[in-house]
């Protein structure tokens, strides 16, 4: 009982393994964000459409991903879809797809909100200058909407990174999963290791997420000035 749990962190390759777990979490989150934001931007645009049916379809899409808990999504993509379709991809790929669809749904709402809140006069001035619809979108709407949606997007990114902690449910070796392995391997000899491991995991998530949070605050402040 006299062993200090902190020694477990630096035993063998434990520390490197935890960093490896963090890397898995980060790249899945990054890929999911990349694909999710691209798809979400398009869906967000479609949701400003005049066509009621189009709006309804993407509205349902948004509500589905917003309402279904992420754990359920991951189970659906990892266990149920493969059983139905005989598809067999590794957990990390399925997780990336599930997360990307979730991000796209959430982001579509952010984009829609931002596009709607660009002042009408801006659009009209653009048209008056003789810009085409595409030019208007690219040079007038997009830059202003981007400014408006940036804080919410960064917020979404931090949420995605945090949510990767659910990946252990589907056998992906993420940070939490590796931490769990180390805790259980040392539970008998170092019962206090659990505090140190979770402490380090907290710190690692904080190091990844806090700069994003700061950035979002800065952007929000700049917008107010």
């Amino acid at each position: 009982m006299e062993h200090s749990g902190i020694s477990v962190l630096f035993q063998g390759r434990n520390f490197v393994r935890l960093l490896g777990g963090l890397w898995t979490s980060v790249w899945i989150a990054a890929l999911a964000l990349l694909f999710g934001l691209l798809l979400g931007a398009l869906i967000g645009l479609a949701r400003t459409s005049k066509n009621k049916l189009v709006r309804a379809i993407f509205r349902i899409y948004l509500e589905f991903f917003r309402i279904v808990p992420t754990v359920v999504l991951l189970f659906l993509f990892y266990y149920i879809l493969p059983r139905q379709f005989g598809l067999n991809w590794p957990g990390s790929v399925m997780a990336t797809i599930a997360f990307a669809l979730w991000v796209s749904a959430e982001f579509s709402d952010i984009v829609r909100g931002a596009l709607i809140s660009v002042p009408k006069v801006q659009q009209e001035s653009g048209l008056a200058l003789g810009l085409s619809k595409w030019q208007l979108f690219i040079y007038v709407l997009l830059p202003q909407a981007f400014q408006l949606e940036l804080p919410a997007t960064i917020n979404l990114a931090t949420r995605v990174i945090k949510t990767t902690s659910l990946l252990m449910m589907i056998s992906v070796m993420d940070l939490i999963n590796v931490g769990q392995q180390i805790i259980e391997a040392n539970n008998q000899s170092h019962p206090t290791a659990v505090f140190w491991i979770y402490g380090l995991i907290f710190l690692l998530y904080f190091i990844v997420d806090y700069p994003l949070s700061l950035w979002s605050k800065k952007v929000a402040r700049r917008k107010q000035d």
Binding site: L42, A46, F85
Partner: peptide, 18 residues
């Protein structure tokens, strides 16, 4: 709308291709 639908369809096909 076409672009978004295509992208979604693509993802669905990917998930269903096996």
């Amino acid at each position: 709308v076409l672009g978004a639908s295509l992208l979604m369809a693509g993802l669905l096909v990917l998930t269903g291709c096996g």
